[in-house]
Each structure stands twice: as structure tokens, then as C-alpha cells.
Simulated assay, not measured.
Amino acid sequence: MTRRNFLALSAAGVATAPALLSTASRVRAQAKTIRVGYIADYFGTSLTAIANDQDLWAKHGLEPELKVFTNGPIQIQALGAGSLDFGYVGPGALWLPASGKAKIVAMNALGLSDRVIAQAGIGTMADLKGKKIGVPEGTSGDMLLRLALAKAGMQISDVEVIKMDPSTVVSAFASKQVDGAGIWYPLVGVIKKTVPDLVEVAKSADFYPANSFPSAFVARNEVAEQDLEAVKKFIAVLKDANDYRAADVPRSVEITAKFLGVPADPFVTESQNGKYLTTAELIAATKDGSVASWLKGLNEQFVAFGKLQNPLDPKDYYLGDLYAGG
């Protein structure tokens, strides 16, 4: 190659670079901005983190503004206030879509991390009769406690329920202020460090699949009704991220920890207590009524809690046809 040819090619490259940058800028400018909420744990962050790591937002024409929240109900409030477009909620907050506060656009994972734990010497649910049990009200831990009591032929009035936030459950159980607790991993693992001889008297896997603890992604009602294109693109991102996670959960743990800037160890335990269906499996579960069954099971629990009196039918708040047909 002569010096003249080299200079000519170099000049052509310089001339082309602005055009390439301009094209990338146009693509980004054309991307639709959406506001997305997440919760800083493995279940609540993993798909969002994967979407970032694998550049899935841009792939599907979206530009996300990501916002972290401490729980699902606050996200539902943000959706209602118009300050959030999409969010993530755990099973304990799914009574809100069931009451018409939001639309479910995609299922996330089935949580198997909940436990009813007891102090050493207490081996069964029957042994907890009349005992003090700490539980975060309206959570999946609360749901599991009620299911386990019913299975043992007991009622919630047969135990002394003490309503606590999750961190208080940890300290109260560790200091033996309560005899039992309805709580979940990774918090059970935290408690075990102080109380290694605790007994797991019930676990969510005991009730699967008749009673499942699904988490989900939700959309603001107005977005679901007025911006179907944005919903479809968001679902497409979730589907890709979901299959990436299902294929390599350990790698997704690393990505999630890096995204949140925290150690991966707690997420390893959390990730091992979930069931991750592929997108194809979630579509099949949507079509055969399994997802509706999960949601109806939760609704029955919410009615028992007194959260709801007349929950909506899942077909009225889960956009299953859109998820399965997209």
C-alpha cells in the first residue's frame, strides 16, 4: 500500500465516522424512553440487570430510566401517580393488580424461598400452637404461614401473630423474642448465622404447584391502554432477559451483583430458591391456564388476609394474550 492510498483510506475513514456516529445517535434518539422500577434483590433486579448488560433495551428500541424501590406497593403508587411506567412486584403485592391498580405484563419467576421457621425443639406446625410468630404482614411469608397452618388443621387464631417488618423478624427471632417466623431466604440464612439450630417446619415448595408464589412485572393502567407499542417492546426485553437467566442462573447472579454494586454471595442463596421458566414455558403456562391458577390461588389468600373482597379475574389484569402472542 502506497502512502497516498493509506492517506486516502484514512481520510475516508474520518469522513465516514461522523456518519456512523450520526446513525447511532439517530437510533438512540428514536428509542422510546420508559421509566422502569426494580427492587434491589435477585428476583427484583436480575432481568433489569441482564437487559442492561446485554444491551437489550436498545435492541428493542427502548431507553430506560431505571428507579430503585424498596417494595412493590410503593411502585404501584408511583404507577398510579404517573411517575413510573413499569415496575416489579413480588407475590405479596399482587393483590394490587388484582384490585385494578395496575396490569401484569409478564411473569418473572416462582419463588420457593419462603419458610416457616421455629426455635430448636419445635418440630411441627402443631408444636407452634399458642406460640408467638413474627411475620411481615401481607407478604409471601404471611401466605406460607397461613397455608401451613391450614394444612396442619389449624387457624391463624391458633397462634399469636406478631406483625413485624422483615429486619425486625430477623432480630426478634435471633434474640428468641418469638418462637417462630414466616420469612424467606436470604433472611433465613442471615438468621441461621445466629441461630444455627433453627427448624424449618414448612417451606413454599411443599405447596407447589397448587399454591405458587410468582413475582411479576406490571404496567401503569394508562400505558397498557394507550401505548401498546411500548408494552410490547418491554415484554420483548423481558423475554430475552428471561431466557438468558434461565440458561445461566450463576452468570445472572454475577451480572445482578455487579449492577447493584454488592457482593454476589447473598444472591447465590436467593437464586437457588426459585423456579425459572423459559419464555416458551411461560407462554405455555399462560395458554394452558397455569398462570391464571397461580393468580387465583394468590387471590384466595388475599381474601383470607382481608386485603380484597372481590378480586378481579386474572384475565382482567394479566395481559396474557399479549405476552403469549407477541
Rank of each mutant, 00 (worst) to 15 (best):
A292K: 10
D243G: 10
D197K: 09
V268I: 06
Q177V: 01
E300D: 11
A12R: 11
A109C: 14
A205C: 06
I156L: 15
K59H: 10
V105E: 04
L319G: 00
S99Y: 07
V291Q: 00
M154E: 05
W184R: 11
Q301R: 14
G90D: 08
L96S: 05
A152R: 04
L282A: 10
D179H: 06
T48M: 13
S271Y: 08
Q272C: 02
W95S: 12
P196S: 13
D265M: 04
A241Y: 03
A304T: 06
D248T: 11
A230R: 15
A230F: 03
V262P: 02
K258S: 13
F173D: 00
V159Y: 01
A15F: 06
V237L: 07
V268F: 03
M107K: 11
Q119R: 12
P314F: 05
I162V: 08
A148T: 04
K232C: 07
I117N: 12
A285E: 09
G138R: 01
S140L: 12
E229H: 12
D227E: 11
L9E: 15
E225Y: 04
V218G: 00
D288F: 05
Q54F: 01
R28C: 10
D206M: 00
L128E: 05
A219M: 12
G138C: 02
P166R: 09
D248Q: 10
S175M: 15
Y208V: 09
P196R: 10
E270W: 02
V249Y: 03
V190T: 05
G180D: 04
